[in-house]
């Protein structure tokens, strides 16, 4: 699964929105999806996100990520379906284990849960693919008063996910090339086959962190009195979008309670 969550500069209207607006968007979608409990509204929310992805010309990336997410979502739904206790029992796969029965409410809950997960991840993917990391840091620091170090930490962690996935791929290949079989045997054996992947990954990540710390220090990271070369201000469109988002959240809260 290759998930690109890097900034993709397509110059769409969505890209031109202020980072703060898009961050509020992602958080608003998160809040609304938590308030919705029925599959249908969640599904509508999900499709509107895909619509926005099309508007931002990042559909291809978002769809390939969504494809990967489907598996996780399916698994999540299955788990909920089997372990949700309330509702009318539709059928019980193992009669002696009543906890494992499938109920009507369980199915709805499982599907909603899976959809909610998809909605939340997609909205953050949208944010990440349409917003350069630098703008995010700036808006976190300037408007949300997050200390620069934390904002930097957050964004660096995100920035390194693609590199990290690339590393995973290369290490996997290097071990496969030495005839290592990652797919072997039962669950315990399967766990053991992970070591040749996990250990080099940890070592490489530590090396990278150390190198990066050194590179940052030599360039004066952490000196007091940081200044910014470029500042960005939200425009009229941003204010309108933010107001709309906040009203949507308010509406969702009112409908729920």
């Amino acid at each position: 699964m290759s998930v690109s969550i890097e900034y993709i500069p397509t110059g769409s209207p969505v890209h031109r929105l202020h980072a703060l607006t898009k961050l509020i968007f992602a958080l608003a979608v998160l809040t609304i999806s938590m308030l919705l409990s029925q599959p249908l509204p969640l599904l509508l929310l999900f499709f509107s996100l895909l619509g926005i992805a099309a508007l931002a010309s990042v559909s291809q990336e978002i769809l390939s990520a969504v494809k990967g997410l489907l598996k996780v979502a399916f698994f999540l739904a299955l788990l909920q379906v089997f372990f949700y206790p309330e509702g009318t029992v539709l059928f019980a796969p193992i009669p002696s284990l009543p906890g494992l029965s499938v109920t009507d409410q369980g199915i709805i809950f499982g599907i909603s849960m899976a959809l909610r997960m998809m909605v939340i991840v997609t909205s953050f993917l949208l944010f990440l693919t349409t917003t350069p990391a630098r703008s995010t840091v700036l808006s976190l620091v300037e408007y949300l008063k997050v200390p620069y170090d934390y904002a930097f930490l957050f964004i660096t962690a995100l920035r390194f996910i693609p590199t990290f996935l690339e590393e995973v791929r290369l290490i996997g290949q290097a071990q496969e090339a030495r005839a290592h079989d990652f797919s072997g045997g039962g669950p315990l054996a399967r766990l053991k086959t992970i070591f040749p992947l996990a250990l080099p990954l940890v070592m490489i990540s530590l090396q990278r962190a150390e190198r990066m710390a050194m590179a940052m220090e030599t360039r004066g990271f952490g000196l007091p009195g940081r200044t910014y070369y470029r500042t960005e201000k939200p425009g009229a469109v941003d204010i309108m979008v933010i107001v709309a988002l906040l009203s949507a959240v308010a509406a969702a809260v009112l409908l729920r309670f």
Binding site: E167, L170, A174, R178, A179, L199, M203, I204
Partner: peptide, 22 residues
Amino acid sequence: LPVAQLARTVGYVFQNPDHQIF
């Protein structure tokens, strides 16, 4: 054919040794 089987005939030394040492 799976890579693990092809590896019997073709060995591949990666550019970065740290991708394999564990």
